[in-house]
Design a protein around this nucleic acid. Structure first.
Lengths: 249, 249
DNA sequence: TAGATTGTTAATCGATTAACAATC
DNA sequence: TAGATTGTTAATCGATTAACAATC
């Protein structure tokens, strides 16, 4: 189809057509009244605004399983990302190939970034090496970093960092899964929408029973008791009152 | 510190303290007026609400580089996820080990899901196999699926699917990178906030020049012309007027 | 010209936050 | 009791959407 109306696009996207038109208007006036939007032209304008029409050389540092997986990821090339180099510190890995590219030694980082004008770096190293690699990337001129290592990176102003935590999505699924299991009957509203009356009452009672001094002792007991009390409402499978075994690291 | 106030927590998180208190209130009344929140108790209550205190067995299907990387990912175990099994269809992969676990054949999928009460499946197969794997997981009883394959999955009602696109974050970085390069001078507002007057005018002119019939022809020319005209404003590096070379797949 | 559809204004809705009574 | 801080109400702010003049 050569043209499309805001109404059609909005229906396809599941949003309000006024919102869609307003959003498009931030990019400019690319529609034609009485006609709609020229599809090819609109796609191009949006792509350009998002930076998809540019070529973005990237370096991937740390060629373990994840580095390998990313080097092979088809979605990169189709979105304008070009792997300028794969880098690793391990002499056993350097020289091997991944996704048809040779793995080069970290020593070449600076020369590659400079000669190929790399502004985006991807870090897939072990957590301990991430900050050091980050520092070298930034020093060499990289101004955007995608961090897959479970490390919080410190960077100077002007450098963007995005951190990918592969378990976040899994946590979101688990959250919904828990709710599915929780209560089959009335499913419409969220746990977070209803006032958790019984839980609240129990918690208040427990805190009072625990002494109410808020000084932190007696809490483990309160938790254990709390788990016992709400046993039927929300069966906390595997819960044994030992907090440390259950908390995120 | 045994207790913390909403003011302290809000400052640490960079949000408003009233919002923080209101959000917490959806979980119940876990604070104490005049004192604050008992840290240990609060952490436990939030963890429980998010499902972090439960044990979640998961299966990973497709043990390529990404499957390997996920199996080894330390963040899973610490958040209550336990890899119940690694599965692959390739006889050359079956029998090998990843993250200390044996890779088992797809044939065992159903029995593993049932015997271990697996409700969450992770798909790291090639795109062509993803839907088929998804169908088998759902049929076996899995009700939440995390999909890393670049395939849109169809599932029955009651099954949750989340799709992870590893290049999305890279695209966000590229978007900001483009803006950094765009205009050093006034940096405060977003490209999307200012009215793109010149671009708009040029586009209108071009559409008129292209015939204004909206029938889709003449657009490629219009784009080429548009690129030429805005040459100095936003140097579209690597742009050569060939749309197909530049569009997302 | 009549019909269609954009781009934008004004009205509505929902989310954030200031303020404060409750209470530790 | 006086001071501190929660939980919640009411006011404010911003985002969404209905409506419509502009115009193809």
């Amino acid at each position: 189809m050569p043209t499309v109306s805001s109404e059609e696009l909005a229906a396809a996207a599941g949003v309000n057509s006024a919102k869609l038109r307003k959003d498009f208007s931030y990019l400019g006036s690319y529609g034609t009244r009485g006609v709609g939007y020229d599809v090819e032209y609109l796609v191009y304008q949006i792509s350009r605004e998002l930076g998809l029409t540019q070529d973005w050389p990237v370096v991937i540092v740390g060629i373990g399983n994840l580095g390998h997986a990313l080097a092979n990821y088809g979605g990169f090339a189709s979105r304008g990302f070009r792997v300028a180099a794969l880098l690793d510190a391990d002499p056993n890995v350097v020289g091997s190939t991944a996704a048809g590219l040779p793995v080069r030694h970290m020593d070449e980082l600076e020369s590659i970034v400079e000669s190929q004008h790399v502004s985006i770096g991807v870090i897939t190293t072990p957590p301990g090496a991430a900050q050091q690699v980050c520092d070298r990337l930034v020093e060499a001129g990289v101004t955007s970093i995608l961090n897959f290592a479970p490390t919080v990176l410190t960077v100077p102003d002007g450098v963007d960092v995005r951190k990918v935590d592969l378990s976040i999505e899994l946590q979101i699924l688990a959250f919904h899964e828990q709710r599915k299991a929780g209560e089959e009957p009335d499913r419409t509203e969220s746990v977070l929408d209803r006032a958790p009356g019984p839980v609240r009452a129990a918690a208040a009672k427990l805190r009072r029973a625990a002494g109410g001094n808020g000084k932190g002792r007696g809490t483990a007991e309160a938790v254990a008791k709390d788990q016992a009390e709400q046993g039927k409402g929300k069966p906390a499978k595997g819960g044994d009152g030992d907090l440390s075994a259950v908390m995120p690291a």
